[in-house]
Design a protein around this nucleic acid. Structure first.
Length: 835
DNA sequence: GTGGAGACTTGGAAGAATATTA
DNA sequence: TAATATTCTTCCAAGTCTCCAC
């Protein structure tokens, strides 16, 4: 895979965390063999894995009995083998036309799915042959989805042209019908919901009154989780807010950029755009050709609107560094601000939050999330986004729709402006919305994570995942059987589900031409999956946010066979792996097991389930640190499972080097202790031969460096102490000293210590080395793994809270304040609660 | 039945705030 | 106390999935 933009690094995901899906408690009936999911083999794969491995059924393929229940209405096409959304092997073509492999239009491409469905049901995949290859052709009656799509633009999912303003219509409809009931309600006393429930230890001493207030506040909190009424589509009866905050108007700085070496005077609008570009200098975007091209195209458009003609024609001749330097200076000035100045800014920010940061939901004060309208700038699309660098225009109030209770006062738009429209829709969660110009995406002002609205959807999400637990055994049985189904569509669905369940892959919706080429399970293409006999599947693709997913997994024999079939000629690079499947089909199929079940629920379920299981290895008698380490390790397993990566920090290598040097320093110190021990008690030479061994990776060079370093540090320390002393003397009117009178007490030479003391020192140093080594491992393992995302989105917080209760750990050790507020609803549970 | 708009969740990066170390 | 490291917060891009108009 070629180098990716944005410093996204490939990292290897440990699949084996996907522990056995078969647990007694899960009633999984497969005869698992623990090798089904091998650890990924990669030089960089250092992720700890201690999985109990999942086993898949390895029933003999000859007994393959179709699951009648599952194939009633599998949508497949009439014939042909044209893959859906075929993309050219060179990666550049994402051909939207439903063409066959020769590029001809498919004659049957517009056949209705129902028809295709029936046809497909008749078409069978041949039984597996004796070699177990099961590569019998499916007669190709079982037609890829692409065939079913109309000739022409199948691909372009998001077609900006001709988009209809259904939203406007919908809103209008809402305004007429779904409006707050006219019936007058007595407005309840204002209570805060989602108000910070502070129980931090720090600050405890200094404001007891505040704590008392908080306790009272907590008691007052809207305990929606006790109501059990989570199914209502009506989100509020009355709702008030102050509207969004618009970014301040641009203030020109007058710094001239250069063109062809000469300073250029720009009008404010152009200067603003030039300043946007200067702001990305030094980042990877500066080197991104698409980013620069898109920026420059839009820059030229803005320049053309200038009153004075501007000579700028070529990007290569533009020099934005004067503006960049100005920005740097501004940054320095901000850094150098006095405490008072900083305080003033903080207060202004707080005042703004106080005014706009809250909304009243049925009289309760709740926190708003992003109440600021996004400022103009350059679109920072990730990966190879074709629109990255495009100018994101300033949003005007006329583009903004306000959603508010019918009886509430509509917030005032900025002076001289009016709102695009005002609606009163209590079935949606947003307070304001607008459409951005780059991708035509709709943006929303939503409530904060701590709000009851978000809390309720979180609880619903986790309850849904818990409900999946009741159905997972049957689902797994079904898809395991389906792997051998005679209908190609069913096989693909089962195989995809196998991956979604076992590997926590995302569903993989179709994407448009004007988006980065990233994929999920259903949208995997030929080149994203390779096979390595006897049973290894290698995944290598760019997933969400253009993060690389690389995984080598030993799979069920039948899954291996299936992939071989799905990749069979004439399929080639650019073709869909699952050409009879998409997310709609997959999710529709899943609803037969459980209302509301979709592919993403598997991610939540498996993350939470894995986490709870991993936590079982918490040492009950361990120290607090050991317990927390166990918690973080469980968290890491989930993060690895979900492929949550982060960019390695620039300072990482240097930081690692420092800690490694620290270990080497300790080792050197240990060698001195050993030496002293042998001198004090020479008999130990025979009794303890290990004392004669050299310390690893402590060579002469290092020792020299280490000692010099110590010397310099000591000099530095003495100099500082002298300086301090002289300042003190100066204040007292005394003459300064040339050197410190008091000499630091010389430490007792090791050789004069007793054997017992030396042994103790040796032991302590050994412990210190081990602890620091663990730190290194921990740091390195976390180098590319981001733990936060899974903690915030995938792991049921009740598992963590129950764990804290069980192991007597303070919640604040594992949840920061934001998380405690976000998951306040979860803190009320029985001691024996389980996911 | 289907495509696409709309609504919402998920996700990493950057910057700010805070803690730790020298 | 300053420098450095870590944690937290904010921002907004990029997913998933439902529902409605055609």
């Amino acid at each position: 895979m070629s180098e990716q933009p944005l410093r996204r690094r490939a990292s290897v995901k440990a699949a084996e965390v996907l522990k056995s899906s078969d647990n007694d408690d899960m009633d999984r009936d497969s005869s698992d063999s623990s090798d089904d999911f091998d650890a990924p083999k990669s030089s960089s794969a250092k992720k700890a894995t201690k999985a109990s491995h999942s086993k898949a059924e390895v029933s003999d393929s000859d007994d393959d009995v179709p699951l009648s229940a599952r194939k009633q209405s599998k949508p497949t096409a009439a014939n042909g083998n044209v893959p859906q959304n075929k993309r050219a092997a060179n990666g550049s073509s994402r051909n939207s036309a439903a063409n066959d492999d020769n590029g001809n239009d498919s004659e049957t491409s517009d056949a209705p799915v129902t028809k295709k469905s029936k046809t497909a049901a008749e078409k069978k995949v041949d039984d597996e042959n004796e070699n177990g290859d099961n590569e019998s052709d499916e007669d190709d009656d079982d037609v890829p989805l692409s065939k079913k799509k109309a000739n022409g633009d199948v691909k372009a999912k998001k077609t900006p042209v001709g988009k209809k303003d259904t939203a406007a219509k919908r809103k209008l409809k809402v305004e007429e019908s779904a409006v707050t009931p006219a019936k007058k309600r007595k407005t309840p006393a204002i209570k805060k919901s989602g108000t910070p429930v502070k129980n931090e230890k720090k600050g405890e001493d200094d404001d007891n009154d505040e704590n008392a207030d908080e306790e009272e506040e907590e008691e007052d909190q809207f305990a929606w989780w006790k109501d059990g009424a989570l199914d209502t589509s009506e989100k509020w009866k009355t709702m008030e807010h102050q509207g969004p905050v618009f970014p301040p108007a641009y203030v020109p700085h007058g710094i001239k950029m250069k063109y062809n070496g000469a300073p250029i005077e720009l009008e404010p609008d152009s200067e603003e755009v030039a300043t946007f570009f200067a702001g990305i200098i030094g980042t990877d975007y500066e080197q991104n050709k698409t980013f620069c091209a898109n920026f420059f195209r839009d820059f030229l458009t803005v320049l053309k609107k200038q009153k004075k003609t501007c000579p700028i024609k070529e990007f290569a001749k533009c020099d934005f560094t004067p503006i960049y330097q100005h920005l740097q200076e501004q940054k320095e000035l901000r850094k150098a601000m006095t405490k008072e100045q900083k305080q003033k800014i903080k207060e202004e920010k707080l005042a703004l939050e106080e005014k706009y940061g809250w909304a009243l939901f049925d009289g309760r004060k709740e926190k708003v999330g992003n109440f600021r309208i996004e400022p103009p700038g350059l679109f920072r699309g990730r990966g190879d986004h074709p629109k990255t660098g495009t100018l994101k225009l300033r949003v005007m109030p006329e583009q903004v729709t306000i959603n508010i209770g019918k009886e509430a006062k509509v917030p005032e738009p900025p002076a001289g402006h009016k709102w695009g429209s005002v609606v009163h829709d209590n079935t949606v969660a947003w307070l304001a919305t607008w459409k951005e110009n780059v991708n035509d995406n709709i943006k929303y002002v939503l409530m904060a994570a701590t709000s009851s609205l978000k809390g309720q959807s979180d609880l619903k999400k986790f309850e849904k995942a818990r409900e999946l637990k009741k159905h997972i055994a049957k689902i797994r049985r079904d898809y395991t059987d389906g792997l051998k189904d005679k209908v190609m569509a069913t096989r693909q669905l089962s195989t995809a589900l196998y991956f979604i369940d076992r590997l926590a892959l995302r569903a993989g919706n179709e994407k448009g031409e004007d988006e980065a080429d990233t994929v999920g399970c259903c949208s995997l293409r030929f080149e994203h999956v390779t096979l390595e006999p006897p049973n290894k599947v290698i995944f290598d693709f760019l997933g969400k946010d253009s993060i690389r997913y690389y995984n080598e997994v030993a799979v069920d024999e039948q899954v291996f066979k299936n992939i071989k079939i799905f990749k069979r000629e004439p399929k080639k690079e650019g073709d869909m792996l699952f050409d009879r499947l998409n997310t709609a089909i997959l999710n529709k199929d899943l609803t037969k097991y459980m209302t509301g079940l979709s592919a993403k629920v598997f991610r939540t379920f498996n993350a939470s389930y894995t986490f709870q299981k991993e936590l079982n290895s918490t040492p009950a008698d361990g120290t607090m640190q050991e317990k927390i380490l166990a918690y973080n390790r469980a968290n890491r397993q989930v993060a690895i499972l979900c492929n949550h990566q982060r960019t390695v920090s620039k300072a990482h290598t240097a930081q690692m080097g420092k800690i490694q040097d620290k270990v080497r320093g300790y080792k050197y110190e240990r060698s001195l202790i050993k030496k002293a021990l042998l001198e004090v008690d020479p008999k130990l030479k025979k009794k303890r031969p290990e004392l004669l061994e050299d310390e690893s990776d402590v060579d002469d060079d290092f020792v020299q460096r280490y000692l010099t370093g110590l010397e310099e540090k000591e000099k530095d320390r003495v100099a500082k102490a002298l300086e301090k002393e002289n300042e003190k003397r100066k204040a007292e009117g005394k003459a300064p000293l040339k050197e410190l009178e008091k000499k630091k007490s010389v430490p007792t030479p090791l050789e004069s210590l007793s054997v017992e003391k030396l042994e103790k020192k040796l032991e302590d140093m050994g412990k210190r080395i081990e602890t620091t080594k663990l730190q290194i491992i921990d740091k390195d393992e976390n180098k590319t793994t981001a733990l936060g995302t899974s903690k915030i989105n995938y792991i049921d917080p009740r598992i963590s809270i129950a764990w804290c209760k069980k192991y007597d750990v303070d919640l604040e050790k594992i949840f920061n304040r934001s998380l405690r507020e976000k998951f306040h609803w979860a803190s009320h549970l029985d001691d024996d609660w389980e996911f």
